[in-house]
Write a protein that binds this DNA or RNA. Structure first.
Lengths: 375, 375
DNA sequence: AGGGTTGTCGAAACCGCTTTCGCTCAAAAG
DNA sequence: CTTTTGAGCGAAAGCGGTTTCGACAACCCT
């Protein structure tokens, strides 16, 4: 029933006369061609190209020149097969961010790919098919030996990908922390410090009434940012009843509805600073506030987190915490290589501090009450 | 001088007693293991897994079950080597967009990867190293037989990548058109129709005084958009002296400086519609206009092009032409497969029409002159 | 019963490369 | 002048698969 191909013997009497010939790739040279032209054995070409010492200088140069002339490079597939290695690292586009137009991805992938290519490794990008469990992709890639390691982002609490990869004993490195034990290699931004720092900044400006647009997302970073915010509130001695929390989805619309909830009710206790744990949310908040006649940065302060490029071009430009995307990518790969070389993953847990990018969406709250320019 | 490795014989008298043993990957199964467990020859396993008809149903099922149990899949590298194929397509991150935070990339790559995986192909993402000529990357990838084809974006007039790939006879498909002869497979948005359509839209709203922020970029799409704009102006019988052209870089800052040039001079002949051939530029323009007290969408109309996600969250939200990123990705791959299977590249030249996404940055110009709400 | 089919499978060659091992021969040593 | 040595290279065995081809039963038909 499931038989699809017939062995050629059943295809009729096409008995070709040319006996042994096999297919050979057309335009490209292989090691035998080079060897023949150089008048040496293939093994010699291989060793010459790989820098073995037992090749006479004259021979080596002849071979190198020939390879150069014909733009010859050993087939990556054949080489890796022979060496029993797989010089590829995979990045599976997180299913959760699908159709979310991640503006960091381009820089991030650029960084991953360039860091990898410094080691002569390649970057494989895969996706999760609709309806397929995310872990299946990892299973497939590993079983077909398509990669030697993985880079993960968007780690969640109790991330099944982490469990699976540990169980399969495949090297990987995570950007961000999941909630499980710290026994895997990871690199993270100090989300908590970032948000606490933002509160410091706003408190120094004089703010005493805050709103925090808590991400309803089930992600570790969301929890940590919230914790950082709380810590900032505490260490700046802001009264607890001066802080409003609104839970929002991780979208611009989230920022807008939060503003509606916070500012459309009674006038009392409106926050002077709206702290958003994500730029997209902040952008929505700014828009909703502007629409209500507030001049953001003067009447109300709004801050973001992430440093998305377009934050520089909102009106007003967004004050935020930014993360060095390219550096993160490079460091992840460095860590991954150490793990692939046998280092204990649990020893890698670097934390990078984000930096405050002050633009114009924040300011001193002294003018509050002078709001509503028109509308 | 360049000798780095010594052949082990020179390493001293470590003469190991275990004679023939070679390295074998540790945890994973190979076809021989499965064959052994099934009590058949490796060739039988291979044919069973590949759906050949000359395998007894009982045998096939036994093998399939075993493979399933051990999560066995043939090594992609070995298989492709044996078959003489390379089931990988490469996408080289365009050096020109580096650090530009392309928000479309995530959806685009997602589409490419998922379309490819439907054919059991992989997506390889590479970058151009600093200072390296872009074509070198393609040369390398081809020479090392790391991919069977390429997807190109950001095509430029007289694109050297296209010339090179044609010359090397490597299949590829281009998103966008370059200026050279149409003898390669490509897919493009109808940039001209898009901009002409935008002019139609604005003219229908009543606009008669236009500004066009022409992209100073040397890209084909920039030229085509300009042409489309001109065509729209002509077919809507707008007087030529009612149209101002400003050449700007493809950035938000470009939009801002253009507005300064257009609106900071004498009051006469200010445009009622500012047509931008890119959303980023439009966003800069909106910001500059807002800063000058104009209410965009009422006092002045601003339109973009591209459909960047954040355009929905500017203040006001941006009216633009949007392109179906995911569909583009899928169709590119379909075309590429046809080309890889021998179809004539020149026969592929599909054009997709963009669709108008009307938001709030445009409107009827009736209120012009009532501008400057404050400032 | 004998010869021709079929249906199943295994042996072997090969894909393009790496690496071990041992051979050869000239130079150095005795 | 022999022996040792070591530099330089080739033969061959793999890596993990695929595919051709032929072998060998078991079946079918006179």
């Amino acid at each position: 029933m499931s038989t699809q191909k017939r062995s050629p013997s059943a295809l009729g009497g096409v008995r070709s006369t040319r006996a042994k010939r096999r297919r050979r790739a057309a335009g490209t040279f292989n090691i035998n061609d080079i060897a023949e032209k150089a008048g040496v054995a293939p093994a010699t070409v291989s060793r010459a190209l790989n820098g073995y010492a037992d090749i006479a200088d004259a021979t080596r140069e002849r071979i190198l020149k020939l390879a150069e002339e014909h733009n010859y490079r050993p087939s990556a597939r054949a080489r890796q097969l022979a060496r029993g290695r797989v010089e590829t690292v995979a990045f599976v586009l997180p299913a959760t961010t699908r159709h979310k137009a991640d503006p960091f991805l381009s820089d991030f992938l650029d960084a991953l790919a360039s860091a990898l290519s410094a080691h002569d490794y390649d970057l494989l990008v895969a996706t999760v098919a609709d309806g397929e469990p995310e872990t299946e992709v990892f299973r497939r890639l590993v079983a077909a030996r398509k990669c030697a390691g993985f880079v993960l982002t968007n780690s969640r609490d109790d991330d099944p990908r982490i469990t699976l990869l540990q169980e399969m004993k495949v090297p990987f490195v995570v950007y961000g922390r999941a909630n499980v034990a710290d026994d895997y290699a990871h690199l993270d931004m100090d989300n908590a410090a970032g948000l606490a720092g933002m509160v410091d900044h706003l408190a120094a400006l004089g703010h005493q009434r805050f709103a925090y647009l808590d991400l309803s997302e089930q992600a570790t970073f969301a929890r940590l940012r919230r914790q950082g915010f709380d810590a900032g509130i505490a260490r700046n001695s802001v009264a607890q009843d001066q802080v409003a929390y609104v839970s929002v989805p991780h979208t611009s619309a989230g920022g807008q509805t939060a503003v509606a909830r916070l500012f459309d009710g009674g006038d009392s206790h409106r926050p002077t600073a709206v702290v958003c744990p994500a730029d997209v949310v902040a952008i929505g908040a700014i828009q909703a506030l502007s629409a209500r006649g507030y001049q953001v940065g003067r009447d109300v302060s709004v801050t973001g987190y992430d440093g998305v490029p377009l934050g520089a071009f909102t009106a007003p430009p967004l004050t935020t915490m930014s993360q060095p995307t390219a550096e993160i990518g490079h460091r992840l790969i460095e860590i991954l290589f150490k793990v692939m070389n046998g280092a204990d993953p649990a020893t890698f847990n670097a934390i990078l501090k984000p930096t405050l990018v002050r633009r114009e969406s924040d300011g001193s709250p002294t003018l509050v009450g002078a709001a509503r320019s028109h509308g």
